[in-house]
């Protein structure tokens, strides 16, 4: 039983990282109905930037903040230069951003090399926290889970409770109508793209604290975030949370009970969900 709980908790803390990455993707999709295939690149770049800042300043928070802003700004530039003009053409956006990720992967390899690095945290966080029934559990994983919950709640409140959020939601439903009411939808689009990219960059620092950063992680995290949003339902922040939790838990249990096929099983989850509910668990019917 302890074992079961422990694996489940590991799954949830892993899910926290997946959620942070996927939330940016689902946010962008939710508003703009486009998928950015450079999302994994944003994750890895954010991790590297966070790593450099944290190494130079010795301050993890500064690294996370810097990475989020830098990646957000880069995302904004990509949106303005490459995406904005055919924002309605979802396939072309997917392909152009795929091109961006090809370039990003190569340039990051040139700059940061092929060896693994990790964002440093103060040794005080690298300790076990005694949990009832589980013994000692790594504090850092619990903190990351907490961060993910805070971000998730914050995003949900932002979208559902603020005026800006209601503009965003209106923009999703009918961007022409919304702009007719005097809202500058373009600014809304741009700012959401900034936010989505910044979240990926932030996730890179968080993920890069727990796991190594190296070439190839961009592809893996793009895939995981795609699976998470497909399972959870595209465009839905709570959906991304549920999707991430499922993916994280399935992958951890699979690692114990069927290690050989753990990745296969993680992806198979997506196939099962699609077969039962093509729009994803919390997806809206129109998305299919």
């Amino acid at each position: 039983m302890d074992q079961f709980l422990l694996i489940a908790l590991n799954g949830l803390t892993l899910a926290a990282v997946y959620f942070l990455v996927a939330s940016g993707l689902t946010l962008i999709f939710g508003l703009m109905r486009v998928i950015t295939m450079a999302h994994g690149t944003s994750y890895l770049l954010g991790g590297y930037i966070g790593y450099v800042i944290a190494r130079e300043t010795g301050n993890w928070l500064l690294g996370a903040l810097g990475a989020a802003i830098a990646v957000g700004v880069l995302g904004l530039i990509i949106h303005q230069v490459l995406i904005r003009r055919f924002q309605d053409d979802d396939m072309r956006v997917a392909l152009v951003t795929l091109g961006v990720s090809l370039i990003g992967t190569d340039l990051m390899l040139a700059v940061f090399g092929g060896t693994a690095t990790q964002v440093a945290i103060p040794a005080a966080f690298q300790v076990g926290l005694p949990l009832p029934g589980l013994g000692s559990y790594p504090l850092i994983r619990l903190l990351i889970l907490l961060v993910a919950v805070l971000v998730g709640v914050g995003l949900t409140l932002f979208i559902n409770k603020t005026r800006y959020g209601s503009i965003v939601r209106a923009g999703v439903d009918d961007s022409q109508m919304t702009s007719a009411t005097g809202v500058n939808v373009r600014v809304v689009f741009a700012s959401i793209f900034f936010l989505g990219s910044a979240l990926a960059g932030f996730a890179g620092v968080v993920g890069g604290t727990l796991f190594p950063l190296l070439p190839g992680q961009d592809g893996s995290y793009l895939l995981f975030s795609l699976v998470v949003v497909i399972v959870g339902g595209m465009g839905s922040v709570p959906g991304a949370a549920i999707g991430a939790a499922l993916v994280g838990i399935v992958s951890q249990f699979a690692l114990v009970y069927a290690p050989t096929y753990s990745l296969v099983l993680t992806f198979a989850l997506m196939v099962v969900v699609l077969a039962i509910r093509p729009q994803g668990i919390l997806g809206r019917r129109s998305a299919t």
């Binding site: 979802d90 997917a94 299919t288």
Partner: peptide
């Protein structure tokens, strides 16, 4: 049954499976 952009993502993920 899925829309084009979904199809792209699903086939990508299936390929990785």
């Amino acid at each position: 049954r899925t829309k084009a952009i979904y199809f792209l993502m699903i086939t990508l993920a299936l390929g990785q499976v």
